[in-house]
Design a protein around this nucleic acid. Structure first.
Lengths: 370, 370
DNA sequence: AAGGTAACTGAATCTAGGG
DNA sequence: GCCCTAGATTCAGTTACCT
């Protein structure tokens, strides 16, 4: 995959490239509402050495040796709010954000993103199967990190590939705790000396689950703390476009090389289980129009209720009439009802759900769309 | 255990009683630096909107109590800072605090307690083995809650019973993620109508681990959001003193009755924690934590030796103590011993090997690894 | 009595799209 | 924007009831 651009208004989007410099500045230089997902792995360390910059590129005062806890938190909070603000501007209305952190910083990040108007969807715990032990025996083994998944605002229509994740999880819906090993062995990038290239490289498995779950192929994923580019590498594999931002030249170099050597999975393997919601909607009236059921025919439910089909595709039962859903709900005293699975007709002595008729229509539509 | 007081300066400490009224006022009326541990389960500020129905159309019984309603984050933050301040004043210099919450509130609580000068020691994730699913398939199953463990200040000499917790976990140091079932079945307290007495009762197994890990017998444990008194019940079982604060008279009544019926290490606690976990290796500590065997119960071997179960899942016999395996080996003068088949407990006059308890746990786990 | 099935439940920020 | 309707969606239990 080569670097390319998508235009949005007057500004081009530098897809599949790594931008250098301060992430807040760089984000503010990109066109607003242009990114589908942001994955952020911000610095955890609160003992900042004065390398924080505001959006206007002014330097945040250093936390020197005499730093006091409150000042330090205040500086970190300002930095956090600044990059969260820049990130929010970049996101499309239905975009979403992931942030990962530990107890040192995640509470401040979480509070800040709520304050900035993001809407938390889940907190997800990465449960490390092979964490570093607590050598001094003074605390619990720090065996997890926390991720926050948030939409740009309350009510936004975020992407969530529920069925795909359920399939990943042996048919059971994915939980908010993910058991995954840390990044080591051959996956861990090394520099020329054989030392680890980056102190906090995240496992690709983590990004895999994030991107499969909350993006679609072709989406634009931005990582403002790109490091050695795990986000970009997995995005490329999965057929998503990425934008990385990283200040350190050494990390950028490693990331460039790493990503260049990756080839995306072929398109067909990127297809994931589709939700039923994505199927075209079929009005029950079509079933009648096509003569698959005739006006006057009786439908029955498993619970023994019955209703008669009318010419306009509505049902009439005992003192109730309306759509297949409305009549089902009323007869059951339920808040709602899926008439397609509730109602059955008789064929050769057997009860068949009317949903099979809908499926017939859908199959025909698939053969010759429009 | 009857209500008694310890004097600290001029003011008495109302041990093993439930105070009524606002927790901040009540805490401020107690003598400063008098409490060893505070366990707090504050309102989560869930912000639920409409009704939620299961796919079978049954309605989910939401936590919509008045005490969980706050007008804004600002109001919630003020409330949080106020009770954290009062709690800090109450703690002894080497005291510690636990808070539990969900993503709705825990980030705000965590940031606030850092701002108030508490020093976070760990965040601990309670991974629920049987959480409520996400019925609409729009998010990840909300399968965990987060606890923050913090000392009163940086550098404080907090209590941490590393060896006891390690023993509870069969010789491996305790991690920051705990797999425990939610509070249901016989453990769940019901009111006269058979409805749950409190919407958010916590499992005793959770408190067991907290108190064994971060207090010593005779310590004073305060819970400012006492509810139906799980903290007090477990504290009493484990020989710790408690102070509860609760505004709602109905909850206080249930808690009083509940705690009165508890005797330290009594058999009645057996039905309190029928826990399940999901690790292939079953530590004997789990058997104790789950209440399948109680601290103080005697185990016997076929050869006539005996030993007593301790709260941390170790045994104590004649001049020997340690794991079920170590104690068995020492008593037999053998190089090793399988404690699971060596030790037996009495049920209905018969000797039953403790291995059947492990098998019970494994059977429960078999269907859902992790 | 034992065994099998149906009903019920849990700290939940739980829809999408057309008119 | 709002309003209305179609119609999609659950896991690990425990308790109650039936044969």
């Amino acid at each position: 995959m080569t670097a390319m651009t998508k235009t949005k208004g007057a500004t081009a989007l530098p897809l599949n490239t790594i931008l250098s410099g301060d992430c807040i500045e760089q984000m503010n230089a990109l066109p607003e509402a242009s990114v589908d997902l942001i994955f952020a792995d911000p610095p955890y360390n609160l003992q900042l050495k004065g390398d924080l910059h505001r959006p206007d590129n002014s330097r945040v005062d250093a936390v020197d040796d005499h730093w006091d806890q409150f000042d330090s938190f205040a500086v970190y909070d300002r930095f956090t709010r600044d990059w969260l603000k820049a990130a929010k501007r970049l996101l499309k209305p239905n975009g979403a954000l992931w942030v990962i952190g530990s107890y040192h910083n995640i509470f401040r990040v979480g509070a800040a993103l709520q304050d900035e108007g993001y809407w938390i969807l889940n907190d997800v715990v990465w449960r490390k199967s092979n964490p570093m032990p607590n050598f001094r025996g003074k605390r619990f083994t720090n065996a997890h990190e926390t991720m926050i998944w948030a939409s740009k605002s309350e009510g936004a229509k975020y992407t969530f590939n529920y069925e795909a994740l359920k399939a990943l999880n042996e048919g059971v819906q994915m939980r908010s705790d993910w058991v995954l090993p840390i990044c080591n062995g051959g996956e861990r990038l090394k520099d020329a000396n054989g030392d680890k290239a980056h102190p906090t490289q995240k496992p690709a498995s983590l990004l895999h689950r994030v991107l499969v779950g909350s993006t679609n192929p072709g989406d634009v994923v931005l990582d403002p703390f790109f490091g050695t580019g795990t986000t970009g590498a997995v995005a490329k594999m999965l057929g998503r476009d990425f934008i990385g931002i990283e200040r350190e030249a050494a990390y950028r170099e490693v990331a460039e090389k790493r990503i260049a050597s990756i080839r995306p999975f072929d398109r067909s393997s990127l297809e994931v289980t589709r939700a039923k919601r994505a199927e075209p909607r079929v009005p029950f009236g079509q079933v009648v129009e096509r003569g698959m059921l005739n006006p006057g025919e009786m439908l029955v439910s498993s619970s023994g209720k019955s209703a008669k089909v009318r010419a306009d595709g509505t049902l009439i039962g005992d003192e109730v009439k309306g759509s297949i859903h409305q009549v089902g709900a009323q007869l059951e005293g339920a808040p709602s009802c899926n008439g397609w699975t509730y109602w059955h007709f008789k064929r050769e002595g057997k009860l068949v759900p009317i949903d099979v008729l809908r499926q017939q229509i859908r199959d025909e539509m698939a053969d010759r769309p429009n």
